[in-house]
Design a protein around this nucleic acid. Structure first.
Lengths: 114, 114
DNA sequence: TTGACATGATACTTTTAGGTATCATATAAA
DNA sequence: TTTATATGATACCTAAAAGTATCATGTCAA
């Protein structure tokens, strides 16, 4: 039931793709715009974008003849959760904060303010 | 001098290695013990352990003719920091908590580079 | 000291990743 | 409509990952 982590971790395993995520965190971009930032062909960038999309890390939306890629940061949460399992090995204050976060996420659906 | 994230993300990109990390989170194990949990040869498991070691995610310590592998969870912190950059896309309370954590960790210079 | 055993090291195979080059298609613009 | 352009798709190349099999080495134990 939990989303399959593998495509997400695999997508994060490449530095170009991590850079792309950061870039899209600044603003949505077309494939051509993303490609301008890298010393590789558009086709290569496109492959990276497909992998990012496979991991659910980006949303792709057509705009005329273009495709606009935007960050879907929510797909990173499962990774964050996976990492949180190891918090018990870190320091106590950090652990306390992370526990609070986890509890916070446990009633994640339809959240509203008290 | 921020640690190079790539070996860490690469190590996390394989499901077998992620499983190994959790196993070692329970207790340190020899190579043979780790291998018992997987349907592959000891040599294959050994390769995974080398990659985990390359990422600094495990410590390997000789004990007689054995090698004991133990989790080094601290090596996951940079990943956590990298992910934290995206918190601004999550909800506000979570962002506040994570900001606190980052401030808590602000000893190490130069986060957010890769 | 001999043998058993845990690990190291190497060579080999197969699959996947990352990349290029090229051509096809759909849309915008003239 | 014609042409330019943004993207899609395919074939291909190279390198790295993931795995096996095999043999060497170091250490414990009888």
């Amino acid at each position: 039931m939990p989303p399959n982590l593998q495509p997400v971790f695999r997508a994060l395993g490449d530095p170009t793709r991590r850079d792309i995520l950061r870039m899209l965190g600044q603003e949505p971009m077309t494939i051509a715009e993303v490609s301008e930032h890298f010393d590789m062909t558009r086709a290569a960038v496109k492959k990276h974008l497909v992998m990012l999309s496979d991991g659910g890390l980006i949303d792709v939306k057509p705009r005329g003849r273009e495709k606009v890629n935007s960050l879907n940061a929510a797909a990173l949460k499962p990774v964050f959760d996976w990492l949180s399992w190891f918090d018990k090995f870190w320091d106590d204050r950090l652990d306390a904060l992370k526990t609070a976060i986890e509890k916070d996420q446990s009633h994640d659906t339809g959240r509203h303010n008290d």
